[in-house]
């Protein structure tokens, strides 16, 4: 669904990442993007630690962090913490079985 003519992406963050994005400016955060990059590279650019992301949404569909983001896409970063049945129903579990944050218990320090 990416529109080739666009050279920007719309980015959102949920849960505590929402507050972090708000510090950057209005929501959604509009970011210039000339060439496709992976979600992981995008996270790096935005200074979001990988273990704070369970899945990313790209144009309303769930993907693992290594999926490619194209100019024109609508992207959202979701930290671990979405209630259980929904992460199943929304496909977080199936799309993202190799991610540490997916359905794994992270010990509190």
């Amino acid at each position: 669904m990416s529109e080739q003519s666009k050279k920007t992406i719309e980015v959102r963050g949920f849960m505590h990442l929402d507050a972090a994005f708000r510090k950057k400016g209005p929501i959604p955060f509009i970011m210039e993007l000339e060439e496709p990059i992976t979600g992981a590279e995008l996270a790096n650019k935005l200074e979001i630690p990988w273990d704070e992301v369970e899945v990313i949404f790209i144009n309303g569909l769930t993907y693992a962090l290594d999926h490619e983001v194209h100019p024109g896409d609508r992207v959202a970063f979701l930290p671990p913490g979405c209630p259980g049945p929904y992460r199943l129903a929304l496909g977080f579990y199936s799309k993202n079985q190799n991610n540490e944050a997916n359905f794994k218990i992270k010990k509190k320090d």
């Binding site: 769930t62 979701l78 218990i105 509190k108």
Partner: peptide, 23 residues
Amino acid sequence: HPVSGQGLAAYGTDVLINILNEA
């Protein structure tokens, strides 16, 4: 657990608005 120990307590079940909207 990140869901029951942190996510729900901070944002309540209303955390789902943005997630379901995005989906």
